[in-house]
Every structure is written in structure tokens, then in C-alpha cells.
Design a protein around this nucleic acid. Structure first.
Lengths: 220, 220
DNA sequence: TAGATTGTTAATCGATTAACAATC
DNA sequence: TAGATTGTTAATCGATTAACAATC
């Protein structure tokens, strides 16, 4: 009982709550907007008014990662923006492959926001012979049979899954076998993968149903 | 002080927490899967194991809307599925227009999941003359100048916004002027609209950044 | 009836907000 | 220095889980 209990994480690595993590990209977006508008410094109170959150929450959130501000001054926008980029891993190589080159996969490949934030889409994959060989926004569509070879030859840790739900689970398992560390899942299924695999879901059907609920519950 | 404090909502209309609302579509999806697999009844405990949540949470969530189960039996899958559809408003007409007929707009128009859940996409709109007149999955692309006329002539309460962030705020305001009640926003901006307008955001850049954070924070 | 499982209250846990001493 | 604003602790609020009486 004299021992401290064993930790998965190293001693100084604080666990950040999911609620905080989800807010980080929004801070980053607002800081980028401020920077482009040549705003040099901002207080938590000013930022809270722009973002429609409390100043307390902003200070609490940021202080999970360090003291980026200065009493009596506030936060330097450019400095905080760059620190946020580091926290979010945007200063690292972030190559992405897209598995499923249908409409949604192509839409992602064409989305300029990702590239602007340092994400590189380096390959699309599909089973459909009509799509294979196509170039989408400068990126080639490969035969899905080439996945293993491609991943072995490139630094790919993130795969976007934009294929039918019926195929998603099987392909996700294969991707993980091949070395993929994170799945950005657009298929309407819950993937069951090893605990160390990161899964980020974008469930469009669930999103529109939430909207539908809110419309119809108002009218009762 | 003898008076009850005034309520916005009518007396028997319970306010449901956002956390609960966000979980409803997932229950609906699991119930649909069970139904297609001919499962007749299910207990909160069994369902909790499938969904990887607590049985307590399921019972609490459902009891916000009524007592759908029976002691000693559990829940009838078909009945609960149909009740969930009503709660989510899927038994009502849900026409959607898509403003922005680029890759993402077309991907939404081609997504069969929405149609399966009773959402009807009845028009796409764009400024690009090359897209106007095109038919996407049986739906025509109209000139964005036709928006007002189209909305006046159809029962459209939901508009998906799939256009560049620079145009989203202006168009959203116009849509609301024209009578749209809910915006499904895919543009990377926070829309400022009257309080009674429902906004559901799908921020893809924020989603991929959250994933990036989780990959890189593991490695430190 | 006995067993199973709900509906619901109470307890716990986590996240947000408020407050203020520290400090630039 | 005086004023402003952070970083951080304490208080509050809300959401989740546990427990169990009600009941099929």
C-alpha cells in the first residue's frame, strides 16, 4: 500500500477530458481568424464573447496544457495559435488514405480545409474498376488490393473509411492489421477494434436525426 | 412568491438534455439492426452489452419519453423501434434542400441512408452554371437565384449548407428569411441566427483535428 | 408464485462556473 | 504604482451510475 498505484501514462502526462479535447479545434479556428485579422493579443473575456462560452472555461481548458497567457495582458494570438497547432499535432506529418472513392471519399479528397491544416491525402482506394486509375484533386484512386503494399511503403497512420456499412468492419480490421493507427469512420457502424486504435466517427445519419428530433419536438 | 415561475415550455413538456438527444439515433440504429435480425424482445442489460453503455443509462434515457418496457420482460424491439421513430420525427415529412452542389452536396444527395430513414432530398442549388441543370441521384441542381421561389412552393424546413465558409453566413441568413427552420451546416463557421432556428453542425476539420490530437498525444 | 426486469430515487462522478489571490 | 487579467482553488451544476421497490 506504500506504492503509488501503477499508471498507464507517464507521471507528468495529464489525462485530458474528452469534453476539453473536442473544444480544442474550435479555439484553433478562432485564433486563426483573429490572426488573419491582425489581432495581436486577446483576453479570455474578449474571446469568450466571440465564441459564446465563459472566460472561465477558456482559461481552464488552456491551462490543461500550460500557462500560455500573461496576467494583465491576456494571450498573444500568434503564440497561442502556434501552441495550439502543436497540441493538435498539426506540426507533424499527417498523411491520410481514403478507403472508398465514392462521392463522399471524393468530397473529402477535394476538401481544401484539410490541406490547409497540414493533412495530406496521399491515396484513394476502391473496388470499383471504373474508379481505379482516376485522379481526384491530384490523388490517384488505387485498387483496394494494393492497400497492404501502399501502407507498407508510406507513412500512413490515418485511414478515412467512406464505404458502405456492410463492408466497413471487415476493411477496418484489415487496415489495422496493415498498420493503420487511426480510423476516421464515416460508415454507420460502430467499429470493434483493439483498444489502442483511435476511432473518430462521423455519423451523418445520426446528425440529421438529431436535427429532426429538435425540429419536431418544438412543435408539440 | 406563491406563483410558480413562468416556463417557456408547456407544463407537461419535459426538457431533454442534449446528452440524451445525441444518443437517441444510436438507439434507433441498434433497434433497427435487432429488428432486421428478427429479435423480438431485449432487456436493457442485453442492449447495454451490445452498445457498450450501462443498462442504467438506457433505462434513464428511454424513460424521458415514456415507459416503453415491461417488468420481467424487457422491451419489445419492434414497438420500441417505432416509438423511437416517432420521437425522432422520422414519421413526419422531412424534405431537405442542399445548398452547394459541389462534391459534398452531391455526396449527401447520393447517400442512401437518409432516404432509408425518411429524409427526402428535393433540390440542390448552386451558383456554378456548369452544375445547374445537372441531375444528381434523380434530384435537379437549380440556380441559387431560384431558392426563394422554390422554398415558397415546397414544404422545406431543412437546408443543408455545403458551400465555402466565406459564403455560408450570408446564405444561411437568406435561407432563414425565406422560411427555412433548420440548417445542417457543413461550412467551417459558427452561424449566428435567430434563437428559434435550429443549427446542427458537421465540422469535418474539427473532427480530423480531434483525431490528430489523440494520435499525437499518445506518442509523447 | 418465483424470477426477471423495469421505472425511479438516491448517490456518485465529472464538468462548468465563480471567485480571488498571484502577478504582469 | 494601479489596473488588468491570468492561473487555480472552491462551489455549483448536470450527467451518469447504483440501488431497489414496484410489478409483470
Amino acid at each position: 500500500m506504500a506504492d503509488l498505484k501503477a499508471n498507464d501514462k507517464s507521471v507528468n502526462e495529464k489525462v485530458i477530458s474528452p469534453a476539453v479535447i473536442k473544444r480544442l479545434p474550435r479555439y484553433y479556428r478562432y485564433l486563426g481568424d483573429l490572426l488573419r485579422n491582425d489581432v495581436v493579443r486577446i483576453s479570455s473575456r474578449e474571446l469568450s464573447q466571440k465564441m459564446n462560452v465563459t472566460a472561465s472555461q477558456i482559461r481552464q481548458d488552456l491551462n490543461n496544457f500550460g500557462g500560455f497567457g500573461q496576467q494583465g495582458y491576456g494571450y498573444n494570438v500568434e503564440y497561442l495559435y502556434n501552441e495550439m497547432a502543436k497540441i493538435l499535432g498539426l506540426n507533424k506529418v499527417n498523411n491520410i488514405i481514403i478507403v472508398g472513392a465514392g462521392n463522399l471519399g471524393q468530397a473529402l479528397a477535394n476538401n481544401s480545409d484539410f490541406v490547409h491544416n497540414g493533412f495530406n491525402i496521399i491515396g484513394l482506394f476502391d473496388v470499383n474498376p471504373k474508379l481505379i486509375g482516376m485522379i481526384v484533386n491530384g490523388v490517384e484512386v488505387y485498387d483496394i488490393d494494393m492497400l497492404g503494399e501502399f501502407i507498407a511503403g508510406h507513412d500512413v497512420r490515418i485511414a478515412a473509411l467512406t464505404l458502405p456499412g456492410s463492408k466497413a468492419s471487415k476493411v477496418a480490421g484489415e487496415l489495422v492489421e496493415m498498420g493503420v493507427k487511426a480510423i476516421w469512420n464515416f460508415a454507420p457502424v460502430d467499429l470493434r477494434l483493439p483498444d489502442d486504435v483511435i476511432i473518430e466517427n462521423v455519423h451523418l445519419s445520426e446528425s440529421i436525426m438529431t436535427l429532426s428530433y429538435r425540429i419536431h419536438s418544438k412543435e408539440i
